[in-house]
Design a protein around this nucleic acid. Structure first.
Lengths: 224, 224, 224, 224
DNA sequence: AATGAATGAGATTTCATTCAT
DNA sequence: GATGAATGAAATCTCATTCAT
């Protein structure tokens, strides 16, 4: 039909290979962990032979690093997208950031990367620093910025910013971890839909941040 | 001197063996993960030979299960201790529960069990159910009960109990995970002391749960 | 200009290919040995792709044999050149043969073939006989003939011809072997120029062969 | 019978293992070369399993080095023994050194080490230096010393010492190489007994070294 | 009961060889 | 003819497990 000759199969596949291999590896690493995943499994899932895998990544460890890097970049990119030129009230900004994060990251396959990180960083110190620099710090800056904005604008109480960020972030990532670990084995008797957890989490934290005349309960608690 | 002959070293050690082995195994499994931990390392750390390990546990997998089971029991026992016959206002009860949990569990070595669980459950399905039944559900019942108490007594807003529990629990466990993963690689520029995080988390959530006349911000957020 | 069209590059190279491949292979086999030389290295050094190599030689083993055969032929051809219609005194003939051999063979890259032969014949029995028939025997005949000529003409003592040939040949080839093995790693403190070794070797052996009235020392030695 | 309990089989074997493995490895490395020898072959020949080999030597390369070192040390020790307190005429000393070397080294299995060295040194630079320092240099010093002694005592002509040593050594080692390479494939029609070669070599070289009034032939040869 | 030498299945990785383009 | 992506057999090495002492 077209005047352009069709890309030859070989070549088309060759270009797609790295991505196919990384996807296969991500899925398996998330499911079974790094050590328990065999090289041939990754190759098989990507539809190639064992040897081909080593044509693209010189060792299983390098493959692992490539998987982490590729998916972290995505995370970072998402973060940048999410942030930006929001104009309205800060509570709405925070709600938007958390919801968007869940839709774009937390509920996507790439969120498996969190499970991998927690499970394996201690065996890959180079990656630890990488992750801290490229994910944790930017994420904290993004959310920390929003919290500070709320405090400055008098919308939020004056609380330690980093700790608030922790309280915001932890339940989100925790949900991802759960899905990838206990996901298959539902906690019977519990109403555990991410959607609901998310909504309540936002409600709760925003209320907790809200400035009000009577803040007696918190003071008491402070004394410790 | 005493009429009681001193326990011979051999025997004394013999009785302590299982515990020593489990402790060594826990430490290593937490540090390196199940697959990456070698049997001889465990034996060496427990001060016995490889062969001896197999006298007590018939396989590395069984050793792993024993480690998890033993430490889950500990967790459960801790849970029971923490709960109890509290009489005062519910916010104080919740604060007490969270603080006690952190002191007795989260900040202790045994908290490494959380990291193990997330990393390995999918490879040990039998354990998954075990953990759900023995840890997740009891913990949720404990905290869920407290939240419900607060709602019934008119101290807390009516929010979905399970979701509130998630918001309470996640940041706590998340801190444990961090210590065991990125602990060695501090996030420079961030003020991340568990003590501070804990205090803010309690303050934030209790404020979020508090009943007040004007709850406008939350309503707005709900619409989306 | 010329009526003859210039050979197209492709074709010109095509004809040169086998030689280029054999040269590349010889160099690498000499340097690293048969097993440690990778096919792609040979191809790369010859400036072609791995696939092309297999268009010319059906396997690495056949390539090896071709390398040996081709270079053995060279050795043989050299042998023929060296021999010839010499008329003068036999000591001079021998000196000439040894010097010429060193210049034309021993000091040339092709001498690497000796290293290969010693290292690999036992893995390639077909080649062993080939080498014996085509190199060792002709060489021995050539030198043996010269030695016999000397004995017959009364220039040399009556010594076992084959053993004398060994004493003539060994130091020469030994030098080649050294260059290809320890060449890169000079024996400090030793004066080891091939030129000097060669001169002394000729001097020594010719003196040793020389007929003289008093040959007492040698007789004593014989007794043992 | 004896009061001494018999060494338990396990332990007895354990002590013998390194030697058994080194012997097996030497034989196979000499026969097939380093790269072409498979680890399990070595293990099998030593009567143990693959895994056991790695209990004693952490890699095939280390095994190779151990083989070389063990056998070279022997060589050096032998050299030292042989040298020493010889009192008689230098020609007899040289003859003794060469004969003893052949009996104790050249004709023994350990002589296979020479073949290995020539074939593999370029791939193991550390070993190259080791060999030069521990074998080549001591050997040259030993023989060089003897040659110098002869020159000083007026028994030998003044010739470049290092070159003479080369002429002495080369035919001996060359014989070893031959046995290990073409040994299985005799050069028909040639009388090639080591004994005979050795005798002639000694005769020839000692005559060549001998001091005599008329040394015309050598002078002529020098001119070129 | 305790040991640690021995085992061998299994994992990673390499590389000669093939074959679609 | 030429290419180089793909293959998979084979080699090295690891480590959970056994068992003679």
């Amino acid at each position: 039909m077209s005047a352009i000759a069709p890309t030859p199969t070989r070549q088309r596949r060759k270009e797609a290979r790295p991505q196919e291999l990384l996807d296969a590896a991500l899925a398996l690493f998330v499911e079974k962990g790094f050590a328990a995943t065999r090289s041939d499994e990754v190759a098989a899932r990507a539809g190639v032979s064992k040897g081909t895998l080593y044509l693209y990544y010189p060792s299983k460890e390098e493959l692992f690093k490539a998987v982490v890097r590729q998916n972290l970049s995505t995370l970072i990119a998402e973060g940048a997208q999410i942030a930006g030129q929001f104009e309205g009230p800060t509570p709405e900004l925070l709600a938007l950031l958390l919801r968007t994060w869940w839709e774009r990251v937390g509920s996507q396959p790439a969120s498996g990367i969190f499970k991998i990180m927690f499970a394996e960083v201690r065996n890959f110190p180079e990656i630890a620093q990488f992750y801290v620099d490229e994910v944790i710090i930017p994420a904290h800056q993004l959310l920390g910025g929003a919290v500070e904005r709320g405090i400055k604008r008098g919308e939020f109480r004056k609380l330690p910013v980093d700790d608030v960020v922790h309280a915001l972030v932890a339940p989100m990532i925790f949900m991802s971890l759960h899905e990838h670990s206990f996901g298959c084995c539902p906690v019977r008797g519990h109403d555990y839909s991410p959607e609901s957890v998310l909504t309540t989490q936002i409600d709760l934290v925003l209320k907790g941040l809200e400035v009000r005349p009577a803040a007696t309960a918190a003071k008491k608690d402070r004394k410790r």
